[in-house]
């Protein structure tokens, strides 16, 4: 099995085909790329191009149809769901467009959740520290529906960092936020990421956000290409959000 130790992610010819009522549908064409540890990578592309599908495969939420994926040296494609769940708990953090907080738990309890699942000591103390870092120390007892979108996403960021994951996956983290809140969340995400030295895979169709990453991969109809930083950037056909 060939893998370089400094690679956090290695993919070899991964594809994803799903069966639909109109026959099999190939969502991802063979994709191969590596991501080094501590690297920040943006995956950009039009909606429906397959970005979230790729993210789901890389994070071990879904199974590849063909090909191989190694996450921190572990072959995801050889694991069953139980093994992948354990790996996710140990190495991976998540941030989603729709926040994905548990509605019947408070902000603080939501942040504690991954630590509890992993069985860490004193999850409450860790959660309180992170709550302070995202500036919500007075809102710990509030339920998600009592928080604004921006506040919910900050809770989600705190939740993502509590287990000190080696790699963080973010699927359109600012997609549901207005410009001001989006920017605040972006800054928080990159600050925390920098200080924790985490590998970041960020899916977005916001070019400005993508620019904050060291590397950009472009998804187009299931095909992934590398974009050099100075190459002209194709418009994705969507109006861009700009900070005022």
């Amino acid at each position: 099995m060939s893998k370089t130790p400094e690679n956090m992610i290695t993919t070899k010819n991964i594809t994803k085909t799903v069966s639909t009522s109109e026959g099999p549908l190939t969502i991802l064409q063979p994709i191969s790329f590596d991501v080094k540890a501590s690297e920040t990578v943006a995956i950009v592309g039009a909606s429906g191009s397959g970005k979230s599908t790729l993210l789901g495969l890389l994070a071990g939420l879904d199974e590849v149809s063909t090909g191989e994926i190694f996450l921190d040296g572990k072959g995801l494609h050889q694991m069953d769901e139980e093994q992948r769940a354990q790996l996710r708990g140990e190495k991976v953090g998540f941030i989603f467009q729709s926040f994905m907080l548990v509605q019947s738990l408070t902000a603080l309890e939501n942040i504690m959740l991954p630590a509890e699942i992993r069985g860490l000591d004193n999850p409450k103390k860790l959660a309180e520290e992170l709550l302070a870092k995202v500036g919500l120390e007075h809102r710990g007892g509030h339920y998600p529906n009592q928080l604004s979108g921006g506040e919910q996403q900050r809770v989600a960021i705190a939740r993502a960092f509590i287990t000190q994951p080696k790699i963080l996956f973010a699927d359109e983290p600012t997609g549901n936020l207005d410009a001001a809140n989006g920017e605040r969340v972006e800054n928080l995400l990159f600050d925390l990421n920098k200080s924790a030295d985490t590998t970041l895979i960020l899916v977005t169709h916001d070019n400005q956000l993508a620019d904050k990453c060291e590397r950009q991969l472009v998804m187009q109809a299931g095909e992934l290409t590398e974009r050099s930083n100075d190459a002209p950037r194709p418009s994705n056909g969507k109006p861009q959000l700009k900070a005022i």
Binding site: E82, V92, M100, Q103
Partner: peptide, 16 residues
């Protein structure tokens, strides 16, 4: 459905 998907995503085993 959502809380279960979230817990599983965050590493909870089926047994948990």
């Amino acid at each position: 459905y959502d809380p279960v998907a979230i817990m599983k995503t965050l590493g909870a085993s089926r047994k948990m």
